[in-house]
Design a protein around this nucleic acid. Structure first.
Lengths: 348, 348
DNA sequence: TTGTAAGCGTTATCAG
DNA sequence: CTGATAACGCTTACAA
C-alpha cells in the first residue's frame, strides 16, 4: 500500500500538495496536478479511507435500517427498493450500511448507528405518525431522508406516492362499475401509507353514500396468506363484498385463492384492485386474470431518495426535499361490472 | 463528543489505561476497570470508529455484493438471506456494507471495495465454477466466505445445501409414482446450484433408463414468468412431460398458470416438485394444491455464514469452514401417480 | 499495573 | 501555487 507521503516523495512534492491535487482543489498548478495524477496511477495509490475519515469527520457511509416482522421477515418490496438505491449510489463515493431489525429493536439499532457516528446520514422508510426513530435522528442532528410520510405534511425530507389519491381513484372505478360492497385489505394499521389509503377509500365511499361496515376493513401484513385469510372470512358472510381493494399483489394472490375456493370467478363474480409496487418476479399482468392495479414501481424511489440524501448532505434545505408522486390506475381483467345479485348496498 | 483523552483526564488516568480497560485487556486492575467503565457511562463516551480503525487497520465492516439481473433485479430469495445475515451480526461489532450490482459490473464493484480496503472481509453468493470474484479476493488476500459452491470441493470457505441429493430424491419420488417424462426447469445455466441440480436429476433418470430429451431441460431466471414460458412451451408438445421439477416456488406458480391454461389439473394430470427456499410471503403449503418441495429455508444460511465469517476473521483455517446441509423432501398435493396416458416413456 | 510517546494516513491552517 | 506542521482520536510498544 503506497501512502500519500510516499507518493509525494516520489514526485518531489509535499503530501499537502498531493492531497490538494488529488481532491481537486483549485489552487494547484495544472502541470503539477497532471504529474500527481499520473504518479498516483503509476504507484497504484489508493487513499486510506480510515485516515481520510478521521481527518475529515465524514464517513462516506449512509445507513439504512429495514423493518422486519418476526414471523415474515422483511417485506419483499423493500429489496427492490434497496436494490435501486444501491444502484443509484453506485457512481457516487457513498456506500450503504444496512441493518435489518425487528420492529422491537428498531430503536436499539438506530441508537447504535447514531452513537457510533459511523454514517453521514440515514435513510428510513415506512414511518409512523410520531415515529421515535425520526425523533432520535433529529435530536442527534443526523441528516436523514424518509421513504414515505408519517403525516400529511411532515417537516422532514421525504419522498412518497399519493396513496390517498390512488385508493380514491380505485374506489371510484369500482363504484362506476356498480359495486356497492367494497372491502379494503390494508397494510399494517400504524403505517402512514395504510392510513392514507384508508382515507382515500373512505372519502369516496362517503361521497357516494356507501356504508363501510367495520368487517369490510382489514389490516394485515402484505403477504399471500394474510390476503387469503381476510378474504376467506369476508367471503364466507352472506352479505359478502363484491369487490376488494388491497395493498399488495401478494395479498391479491391470496384473495384469488379464497375466491377460487368459494367458487367465485375473479373479474365477474368478484373484482379486485391491488396496489402494485411492481415485484419484478411476480408481475400483476401475469395474474389469471391480469390484475387491475394502482401502479407505482417502488424501485423508482431509489434514485430519488439517493439524490435527496446527497442534496441533504450538501446542505439543501428540507423544504426543497419533499416530493409526492401521482399513481397510475391500470385497468385489467380482474375488475368488471358488479354482479346482479350484489347490486344492493350492504345495510346494517 | 467526549474523547478518550477527556475521559482519561476526568478519571486521572492515562488514555492508554482507559483504552486497555475498555477493550478488556487482562493487565488492568479490576478496580480501575470498574472506575473506567462507570466514567465512560457517565460521560457517554463512544469511541470514534474512524480513529479506532486508523489505529488498528480493521474496519468492523463486512461487505456483500449481490447480483442483479438487469430486467428482474435481485432474486427475492436473497433479501431473506440478507435479513438473516444482518440479524446474525446484530450483537457482534460487525456491520454490513451492501452493494447491489448487475452481473456486468460485479468485478467493478468488487475492485472498488477491495481496493479501498474498507471491509475486513466479504461474503459472496451464487458462485460459478471459475468465479473471477473469488479469484480477485483471493489474490488481494481479503478473507471471504461463500454462500454456495462453484465446484464440488472448492478450496474456500463455503456453506451450501445438497442440491444434487435434493433433486435426485425428487426425481426418484416422481419415478416411483410412475412418471417417465420428467422435465427440469432449472435456474440460470452457469450457477453452481443449477449444475448440481441438473446432475442429481440426470443421475436418477439415467439410473432408471429414462431418456432426457434436450427440450425437457430449461434454464432461466427464477421468477413466475420464466416458469410459465418454459412450461407452456413444453406442455404444448404432444409428448409433453407429466411432471416438472423446478428451482423456485415462483417458477412453480408459473407452471401452474400454464397448466391451468392447458386444462391440466395439478396433482392429477401433472405433478410438480419445486425447490423451496421458503419465501415467507408466499408459502408453498398455501399453493392450490399445496406444493411438494425440496425444502431448505435460505434464511438458515444467515447465521451459519455470519459465524463462518467471524471465524475466518479470527483465523480459523478454511478447511474447517466448509459445510453442506441435507435438504428435506416434503410431499404435498402437487404430486401424484402418473396419468395413464402418460405411462409410456418419451422416445425419439 | 500504569504511563509515555510514537505512530496510523489524511486534511487543514498558516506561512511563504 | 507550494510547503511545514499541527491536528484527527485511538492503539500499542516500551518504559517505569
Amino acid at each position: 500500500m503506497t501512502t500519500i507521503r510516499q507518493l509525494a516523495e516520489h514526485l518531489g512534492l509535499s503530501p499537502a500538495t498531493v492531497s490538494r491535487a488529488l481532491n481537486g482543489f483549485p489552487e494547484v498548478g495544472v502541470a503539477t496536478r497532471q504529474r500527481v495524477l499520473e504518479g498516483a496511477e503509476r504507484l497504484h495509490y489508493r487513499p486510506n479511507m480510515h485516515a481520510k475519515r478521521l481527518a475529515t469527520g465524514k464517513s462516506g457511509l449512509v445507513g439504512m435500517i429495514f423493518r422486519a416482522s418476526s414471523e415474515r421477515g422483511v417485506d419483499p418490496h423493500v429489496m427492490d427498493f434497496l436494490s435501486a438505491l444501491s444502484l443509484a449510489f453506485a457512481d457516487s463515493e457513498i456506500d450503504l450500511l444496512v441493518h435489518i431489525a425487528p420492529d422491537a429493536q428498531q430503536m436499539e439499532h438506530h441508537e447504535r448507528i447514531a452513537s457510533r457516528g459511523q454514517v453521514d446520514g440515514m435513510i428510513l422508510s415506512a414511518p409512523e405518525p410520531d415515529d421515535p426513530r425520526i425523533e432520535l435522528l433529529a435530536r442527534r442532528n443526523i441528516p436523514f431522508v424518509v421513504h414515505g410520510r408519517g403525516t400529511d405534511a411532515p417537516d422532514y425530507a421525504y419522498y412518497d406516492i399519493d396513496n390517498e389519491g390512488a385508493f380514491a381513484a380505485a374506489t371510484r372505478l369500482l363504484i362506476q362499475f356498480g359495486h356497492k360492497r367494497i372491502a379494503l385489505l390494508n397494510g399494517p394499521q400504524p403505517m402512514g401509507y395504510a392510513r392514507q389509503r384508508e382515507r382515500g377509500y373512505r372519502a369516496v365511499m362517503d361521497e357516494h353514500g356507501l356504508p363501510v361496515p367495520p368487517r369490510f376493513v382489514a389490516n394485515g401484513e402484505m403477504h399471500e396468506e394474510s390476503g387469503y385469510r381476510a378474504a376467506a372470512t369476508m367471503l364466507a358472510d352472506r352479505a359478502r363484498p363484491t369487490a376488494f381493494l388491497c395493498s399488495s399483489t401478494l395479498q391479491a394472490l391470496g384473495i384469488m385463492r379464497a375466491a377460487g375456493e368459494a367458487g367465485l370467478k375473479v373479474g365477474e363474480d368478484l373484482s379486485i384492485i391491488s396496489h402494485d409496487d411492481v415485484l419484478p418476479h411476480l408481475l400483476a399482468e401475469n395474474f389469471a386474470p391480469p390484475l387491475t392495479v394502482t401502479r407505482q414501481p417502488i424501485r423508482d424511489a431509489g434514485p430519488i431518495l439517493a439524490a435527496m440524501m446527497m442534496a441533504r448532505l450538501a446542505g439543501t434545505p428540507v423544504r426543497e426535499l419533499q416530493r409526492t408522486d401521482k399513481v397510475d390506475l391500470i385497468v385489467r381483467g380482474s375488475t368488471g361490472p358488479a354482479p346482479k345479485w350484489g347490486g344492493e348496498a350492504w345495510s346494517r
